[in-house]
Design a protein around this nucleic acid. Structure first.
Lengths: 208, 208, 208, 208
DNA sequence: AATGAATGAGCCTTCATTCAT
DNA sequence: AATGAATGAAGGCTCATTCAT
């Protein structure tokens, strides 16, 4: 059955591209991992590059329009920020592999055709975040901060943790434990830190 | 002259590895860029991997022990944080290419031997930062925050900006201008944001 | 319907083999041209080689026994030669594609099994021609020429024109016109030349 | 040494392309035949197609301007025709392999870039022949024949013999002997036939 | 009868590296 | 010290063919 093997290849691609990079992953290794014949990649996707593209698009479809829902709801900005942080951490921590692929690709000058696609995926979410902060500022509920860089801080903190998970594990301590950066304990800790940080950052200064 | 060609190769390596990745850079392209014979890479460095290692080590030497100086001085924690931010932004923004290489390498499972080396370089600095924050907390000058994750935030914000410079330019606005993320205006804006963020984040809450 | 698709494949084969050669024609291209499924070639013919064989045999059947009729009739040698030339030119000019395939195949050392089949087709006709000339010589109506090489001349002249049609167009002039080598005007010109040549070549020398 | 292996490859190319065709010849077979590493073809020529081109150009250089010499000399047209036939037969019979490659390539629609080059080589010679015949006609030494088609006859007869040597051997008899079409005996026979044919064809008719 | 999926061998090319000079 | 030539492995991809339905 077609759909089966196609998915096997896409899964293998996500894993291998994530760990070894595009150039570091051979079609032979891919077909071995997916337990399919080496010719199936060309058969289903046409080429290695098109497989990469298909893999990005598959994941992109599931990633987009995630935060719109939150922003649309009639919460006050504080609640929205809280929800956004929780949602974003859950989403990113739940899909570390693909995150790596996207950010690595953004840092390369190969395959320019995909940069735009990836940026669109990311910008869609960051713009939602920006608009929440700007709304809070306009309503005088938030302090007048640099909204765009605040989003960078939010996104950057979480990216840092997931992209360099080995490094992050060593940075945030618990040296003895071999816990993954994405386990529940860490997830809670990160959410708490982000809530705390945003609370302090966005709360207007007291008068007098 | 030996030293000359060695440096030419290392320069070419930094540029090409930065733009195309390790696997995406061929020794042929490297030797062309460096204007040396193709056999020189193996001749001087032994192999492509060892060239990579040499390039990392060259840059690492110039990068390490940068923040120790600040921490040693007898500033109060607030001043130290301020200095650290300015210094760190300057340093990272001044060497975007090598940053990319390091972080991309950390996200790959190829060449495990180098991960440790890179982590050491990074951890050296982040630990300095951590110790500043923890000192401030102990002295009750700073609020009792998650020191380690605060460092992640600091480092993550700046990494985000430099690693995905195209994306960042589109995130932080000034849509009309084609300004680089690392130009002076942006550098000042980033420093200001970080100062502002840390001020709000670390200032102890007023007593009731 | 079976017969239909078989013919479609054979037609496509004749065209593609003619233009691209046996090795240069892929089964994929073939099935696309014939608008049939890619598996049909193996299904109907067993293999690419057997399809080639079938195509040769189909055309061979229609080609053979063409000149026998002329030789059998009770014409005098001069009339026979005239008829043979006209008939041969008509036949060859009317089927340039297959001619190309045959002669190209004869010049290759691939697929030896088919060489014999093709040679039989060709020899059948050239022997008829030989026998006409030899009959004329025996009857002292023709000069004592090298009958076999005379046939080579006859056949070679026409082969040359059809096999390298682009070249021939440029050789026989009318530079301005983009006329095909096989159009009516050229056909008449070629027949006239061949009649003229054979007349001069075969007419016995005057005595005294 | 460079020149050595380059020549070995070109020699192997001429032989294998001649016998198996361009598509029918693999680089592996080529490198085996030439006793060089498989990567040397790309190293010296860049690609299979460029090797083909180089092979054609090498032979073309040696082939061109062969007949000009004859035409320039101050012979009468009869002597010139005689010399041309002898020279042409010698040349073509001495290089059957390359002839095959050229004519096969002319009959294919692959690699259009080379068709022009080959046609130039051939046309150079045929135009010399044409001019000789036309000169003879103008001087009333030759009969008023179709000069261009006469050249086609001349060239076509010889092409026929060399391109389909197996066939030709069976056409021109001596069935018992396994003699090559290009051996001395056959060469003489062909020259004699061509002289004889041209004599008869070009001699003006006697006046009444 | 007819097909889309699947196969493994082979294609040409480029790779990092080593050799002879 | 430095190089152009040479190597064998591996690269992505296409091939003719067969399988399961």
């Amino acid at each position: 059955m077609s759909a089966d093997k196609r998915e096997q290849i896409l899964d293998a691609a996500e894993e291998l591209f994530g760990h070894l990079g595009f150039e570091g992953t051979s079609i032979r290794a891919l077909s071995l991992k997916a337990s399919v014949n080496i010719a199936m990649v060309s058969y289903y996707f046409g080429s290695k590059e098109k497989l990469f593209q298909a893999m990005v698009e598959r994941r992109a479809g599931a990633t987009t329009m995630a935060l719109k829902f939150i922003n649309a709801k009639e919460h006050d900005p504080w609640k929205k920020i809280e929800l956004v942080i929780d949602h974003y951490v859950d989403k990113i921590f739940g899909n570390v592999g693909f995150q790596r692929i996207m950010y690595r690709e953004l840092s390369l000058d190969q395959r320019g055709w995909i940069t735009e696609a990836i940026m669109d995926i990311i910008l869609q979410n960051t713009r939602e975040m920006s608009s929440i902060i700007e709304e809070g500022i306009k309503k005088k509920i938030f302090r007048k901060v640099d909204a765009e860089l605040t989003v960078v801080t939010l996104v950057g903190t979480i990216s840092k943790l997931t992209l360099c998970s080995n490094l992050s594990c060593r940075m945030i301590g618990d040296k003895g434990t071999k816990a993954s950066i994405t386990d529940e304990t860490n997830k809670k800790r990160v959410k708490k830190h982000m809530h705390d940080l945003m609370k302090a950052h966005l709360t207007p200064a007291l008068k007098g």
